[in-house]
Design a protein around this nucleic acid. Structure first.
Lengths: 190, 190
DNA sequence: ACGCTAACGCAAATAATTTGCACTTAGGCA
DNA sequence: TGCCTAAGTGCAAATTATTTGCGTTAGCGT
């Protein structure tokens, strides 16, 4: 039987939690550039070799931790109206991602050269959130939103400016971006 | 005299060139994840300590090399018309950046946690290119282009999709993005 | 040409990463 | 339920990468 056999429970899971927790805790007080695997291992109470075997190297571990932190814990706020939902989501997204912590998470996710699935997962989170908002719109009988258009017009510029630090992404700017998908009643993508 | 005293010529410059060349050469045949500083040092004919002292670590060296490779060697093509210039530039930009090499360069630039100037420099290149095109437009008496708008509407989505790998950025898609800044004769940003 | 010192090369010391082997244990199966 | 098997772990030795002190080389300003 060629079954996959990947362990999820018990010790394995406990170790994953402890390593993740140790990483998060150390990132609070340590610069990313002086964070090391042995440091995390000691704090988590495991030997370094366990971390190397399981995650490969520091950047992959950081990417894994970052993805977990970026994973949404709840659906976007329901404001009762599609544009309200969008605005609430986008403004909060920009605020979180442009913070020092958020920026680091974004970079950790992108830095991980192997396992490009980190980046894919992370952008999936955004897509899923927008899909929930789109679903609500339909349920309410409002015109649906074009998710691809929102990503291109709103999310992408925000992420670009955060990554390249060439301008702030304050709420007003986010609303300006959003306004461009609103014209003509959330029209379909070009 | 509190002059800075940074050396640019002679040996120092030669070493920088050799290390850069060695890095580029090794990246052709080696996966980024198995590239090491001692490897580059040997190929460049310098001791590893020289690299560590000068660049700090591998990711900073890779970022430095990436910035140099992204630095434009010439002004964007002059097609005789503003939209033609823009289209030529954007399509080529997307093609270069979405290749395996381009994607790696982009990530190397962003990965470097210290010295965030790498990212800034790199996005400056794009801005400068657009400024040249904008300057030509004015010189021809055509309406000027809003560089911020082009970045938000065209460059940012392209970069986003390349980094997160959630869709291809083929020429047609680039032209669609460009079309949204063309409506109303290159109108001023929102 | 001369002096000053940034940048270098070397090698020893330190730290990180890899690896073989024995052991533990999650999860499937009887 | 209680075996069985291999995924996952811990340990420690071997390897490899990184840091650092110190003497030397060579830009650059005078």
């Amino acid at each position: 039987m060629a079954r996959e056999m990947i362990r999820h429970g018990g010790r394995s899971a406990r170790i994953q939690n402890e390593v993740h927790a140790a990483t998060r805790a150390l990132l609070e007080v340590t610069d990313r550039s002086e964070l090391t695997v042995p440091m995390i291992a000691e704090r988590a109470g495991v030997p370094p070799s366990t971390i190397y075997r399981r995650w490969g190297d520091l950047s992959q571990l950081l990417a894994d931790v970052a993805v977990e932190r970026l994973r949404p814990i709840a659906d976007p706020d329901d404001t009762g109206a599609t544009m309200g939902d969008l605005e609430a989501f986008v403004v909060q997204y920009a605020e979180e991602m442009s913070s020092a912590v958020g920026r680091r998470l974004l970079r950790d996710v992108l830095a991980d050269a192997e396992n490009e699935t980190s980046a894919t997962k992370c952008c999936r989170f955004t897509y899923d959130h927008l899909e929930v908002i789109a679903g609500r719109a339909v349920a309410r009988g409002e015109p649906g939103i074009d998710i691809g258009l929102v990503i291109d017009r709103v999310i992408a510029p925000i992420v670009y400016h955060i990554l390249f630090r060439d301008r702030d992404v304050e709420p007003d700017y986010c609303r300006q971006l959003l306004a461009t998908v609103e014209v003509g009643g959330l029209r379909t993508a070009a």
